[in-house]
Design a protein around this nucleic acid. Sequence first.
RNA 1: GGGCGAUUAGCUCAGUUGGUUAGAGCACCAGCUCGACAAGCUGGGGGUCAUAGGUUCGAGUCCUAUAUCGCCCA
Length: 1031
Amino acid sequence: MGPRRGAAMHELPKQYDHRSAQARCRTLWDAARAWHAEPEAGRPTYSIVIPPPNVTGALHLGHALNNTLQDVLVRTRRMQGFLTLWMPGTDHAGIATQAVVERRLLEGEKLSRHDLGREALVSRIWAWKEQYEKRILGQLRDLGASCDWDRTRFTLDDQCAAAVREAFFRLFEKGLVRRGKRLVNWDTFLQTAVSDDEVFHEQVKGHFWHIRYDVIDPQPGEPESVTVATTRPETLLGDTAVAVHPSPALALEATEAAFREKRAAAPVKEQADLDAAIDDLAARRRDILPHLETLAAMAKAGRHVRLPLLGRAIPLVADEWAKPEMGSGCVKITPAHDPNDYDVGRRCSLPMINILNPEGTLNAEAGPYQGLTIKKARDKVVGDLEAAGQLVQVEDRVIELAHSDRSKTPIEPYLADQWFIRMDELAQPALDAVAQGRIRIVPERYAKSYLDWLSEKRDWPVSRQLWWGHRIPIWHVADVSEADLAKAFAGRGTVAWRSDEAGGWFVCSSEESLGAESVAGAPLVRDADVLDTWFSSALWPHSTLGWPAATAELAAFYPTSALVTSRDILTLWVARMVIMGVFDTGEIPFHEVYIHPKILDRYGETMSKSKGNGVDPVDVIDSLGADALRFALAGMATETQDVRMPVDFQCPACGHLVEQTVQNRVKPRIDCPKCQKPFRTQWASAAADLELPRGPAVSEKFEAGRNFSNKLWNATRFVLMNFEGYSAGPLAGVGDITTFPLEDRWLLSRLASVTRDATKAIDEFKFAELARVLYAFAWDEYCSAYLELCKARLADPARRDQARGMLLLGLDTILRLLHPIMPFVTEEIWQHLAAAASGRRMPWDDASQPLPSSLMLAAWPKTPDTWIDSRTETQFGTFLAVVAAIREIRARQNVPPKTRLTAVVRAPAEIAALLEPMRSSIESMAAADLAALGPGAFGPPSAATATAAGCDVFVDLADLVDVEAEIARLLKENEKTEGFIAAKQSKLANESFVSRAPDAVIAKERAQLAELEDKLAKALAALEDLRRRRV
RNA sequence: GGGCGAUUAGCUCAGUUGGUUAGAGCACCAGCUCGACAAGCUGGGGGUCAUAGGUUCGAGUCCUAUAUCGCCCA
């Protein structure tokens, strides 16, 4: 602080401090509840519901991206004057949350959920939820999300629960809910079915056991046994058939034909393998086909084989699932424990024997094996088979084993009673909404997967054998008549019942309780299951707004405007929201769905906590600021594809960046290769590791945003430094801009173009483009060009105020356009502007009102199209090119920046006339004296030359010039120019080009050729001068 | 097996209805302590647009095939 600066000056620190700014802005926004939306008649609305994050843990980078994009939309629309609601909330995430809590319970207290009981476990999960919900919402606020925090919902709160019961009840009443057996993915650890989406496959080493099943009473000519192979021998206890292909000869022929066709088209390197496969088929035809034909005939005759160990007679059946080209050509059929066998079982009407208890031990159906775990049963079955001489062979084999994503334990296919929602009728309106364009999916190509998935109209299994979730509002009652039910629930429109087709009844209610323990003496037993977590998510857009009540919020904000999400839940969530939204309210839940990309690591893998390859958004917010994070994320949201983000560990001791690799990312501690000091990672668990400082995972991608924040900050610092004695008046009319100096007309033109482009980018969900356009304008045009130009004007009292006004107009507009992406730094600066220039108004502001207290509530720029002036932009471009040419000469001749140059610009008369008013600007920006400007201007023989936008620039370097370097440079440049000329000439000599290309293209080519030839001629003349000088 | 997408500078990505000499950020090189900013300024080097064909006066862009990678579905 020099003595020249008085206390009244708005002197800002040299560096932007994101930490204090973020805290201040949050306080400001919260105090004003600037994010709150109250329904209000007659105002256009814009609404988004947040994809509710799971309360399982902390937010990751994907959440940061997802919510940044929503906030960009929401902040823009709010500034544009829409009554804007962004509905926040979290998801109870059924199985995911219960699994996390159960795992901690087991690790921490060695207790299972059964030790605790339903009520106690659920209350533990609620406690977990409270903790993580708070953390997640806090992180969203740290990110800057302008959600309506007064409306925060939770998928399991009372309001959502009422909506869930009502929706289920309506489905039940309409007969769209059914109960049935289904082969489910059984998680024996969590003891629940998990959906296909919650299953991942992992390759594990296993075996392939070949087992002999004896034929009962073989006839002469018939085989005495069949051999089948399995990776899961214990399942034979549940076998109810052995299958063989009904027409093995035809099947083999078809397979062979397919192979031959493939062979004909195959590249050479694959041919050998295919030949071998074909030979193998021929051998099979010779060796085992007769045997299979016999077995097929036996199957059709209803013959049986004996199940080893248990001795049960099971039929031979003919089914195409048995592949004659594989193994022995026969397969064992265990309908209750294998998806394919289940299909066979249904086709052949086989019994289905479930041999498992829910916790993964064998039940009474397993006879002597009852009570064993699957693993022990497997060992014993194999041992017993061997002892009985039924085990033919054991092969080592790598198998794809299904695991539960939640418990990480192997999945057992398991036959169980489940609740389903019938999709045949429900899916159609959801299909139509997208097919007919009432819901627009962006990018469009994702509409295909949505439509494909929905058009299968597969029933939705909605029951889960969990304790954490919405309890299915169904009670079971047996031994009563319908008249009993009608009497018991007379006048209750909220109760409905249907036959369970086994003599009993299902009673469903939209109320929390039936208000009765029994009907006609028969007990009402509440169904133990809870609903799939996606059921409550499917209601999210309308349940959060108060449905089924006819609230003002529902009327104002439903259907919502847009949904922003990631593609992996397009079917699980988006499609189901459409289905349930239309079913419950008769209206689609949103008009647009924007699918954003995924962020991958440097190897192209998706980031996940379990891989340890992610970046924690909190680290970025902490070190570089929320705006830096948001700017980088918005810049990654390109339309076409996922983006990679190379990640490094930052050494906490020396700051060195250690590349994150597949090897080191799973280690609990890493030694910094530079300073040798160790640091811990997210995996640290040993006490010694936990004491180490943490090395956060970082990415340089975020630094651009931090630097940009600082650039804006310093531009403001400069503007405010020059505000002494300035009182900004309203800029409402801006006045007669035709009298403005060129640079001001240029700035206005650029402001108008950029505003138009930015607004369009947001309308089209082109977030990366938005970020790029604003970055380039703010940095390269406003700061590097305009602000530099103003330096001379600010020193001149006669021109000072015009420059200040324009600087303010430009800065304020940039802040408003940038605010949706970088809310904190723009708000912080806006507050400083308010202190220094409270009287200012933008042309699009309501001049009769004071400016809002927060940038968040300021008006989005509405620039007049009349500002756009392409002639001015061209003219300004020429000016910049001349400046650049002089600077280039300075740089290539190694002239120090302080040494003042003398330059001459030869330009055609009309260009010279345009440049004339910019003479002093050229001089100040290029640090050069302009000795001459015009068509007749020429430089001395000792000048270095450059060309720029039709002008020739000469810089007299007298004895400074490095003649040899200049000659070498010109020679190289001429070579290039000659190449271009040759290419143009041949193009223009091409008869078909000249006759077919549009005239405009040809004229352009001619003009370019002329320009190039002119350039070459001038360069040759300059070369001559230099050569003469050398001699 | 079916579908979708991608391949452009060392890295991460733009590139509009086909039409100048293909752009940006980071990284790299050279020079700069200028009263806004070294998280900065000025200048520079760096690309046979995956490969092979085709359409066209003209292809990074359209078509076909191939290779590689990714995702979704069974």
